[in-house]
């Protein structure tokens, strides 16, 4: 079922030889989300149990966190059960609002019907050029992550202009720009304009770091 006409072909996430015998982990990577939900719930539980309650109001400050904890445990468990029962291989179908809206519901509201879907398919019929082992491109995500972590760590020692230029360059490089020297210039220009417009113009205090020390 599709909602838009130009649907990229679904990219198989498992190698062909693995397809025959799916491992337990296949389509169940969403357990990461279950882990996050449990982690938040456990953090809230410990925090609620060890809270130094001030005042004697009733219901007190622990009342609402307990409700949120119950919701989180419940939802994490239900999600785990759902993933166990029906593993999901990532598809490239459009999820309206990234899960915010049920495609079935929109399909019905829009009277899309079958004929709408047929039109959709003639354009998307290109074979995937390549298959990958994982759905997400962890190399690019990793570069980006390293870039933002380095930026936050270096912002105060190096100052805004240098660290923001580095961040700009890293993100552009990770996302596929190949004009390395040119990008340094673009990044430098961009961060300097921000420093000028928001630092000098609107009065934000940005760390000056090294350059501030030299001047």
């Amino acid at each position: 079922m599709s909602l838009t006409q130009n649907q990229p072909e679904a990219v198989p996430v498992v190698k062909p030889q693995e397809k025959a015998r799916p491992r337990f982990g296949t389509g169940r990577s969403e357990f990461v989300v279950v882990a996050v939900l449990y982690a938040v719930a456990i953090f809230l539980t410990i925090g609620t149990a060890t809270m130094h309650v001030q005042g004697k109001s009733s219901p007190g400050p622990q009342f609402f966190p307990i409700i949120v904890c119950i919701v989180l445990y419940l939802v994490a468990t239900l999600l785990a059960i759902q993933i166990l029962r029906s593993p999901k291989v990532p598809d490239n179908a459009i999820h309206p609002g990234r899960g915010q809206f049920s495609p079935d519901m929109l399909h019905d509201l829009g009277h899309l019907g079958k004929e709408g879907d047929e039109v959709c398919d003639d354009e998307a019929a290109q074979a995937p050029a390549k298959t990958w082992k994982t759905y997400s491109d962890w190399r690019t995500v990793g570069m980006l992550f390293a870039g933002v972590v380095a930026f936050v760590a270096l912002l105060e020692p190096l100052g805004w202009i240098i660290s923001a230029t580095m961040l700009f360059w890293t993100v552009a490089y990770a996302l596929g720009s190949r004009r390395r020297f040119f990008d340094i210039g673009v990044g430098l220009l961009f961060s300097s304009i921000i420093q000028l417009a928001f630092g000098a113009g609107l009065g934000l205090s940005l760390p000056s770091g090294l350059i501030g020390g030299i001047l």
């Binding site: 938040v40 001030q54 007190g60 400050p61 919701v71």
Partner: peptide, 29 residues
Amino acid sequence: VSESVIRGIAALGIGLALALVGIDGPSGT
């Protein structure tokens, strides 16, 4: 309206948890 009720409520729970951090207004805890 969401695609999956469980995932929608999970998102709600994360949001409520984030909002809980800080000093509780009525009691000062």
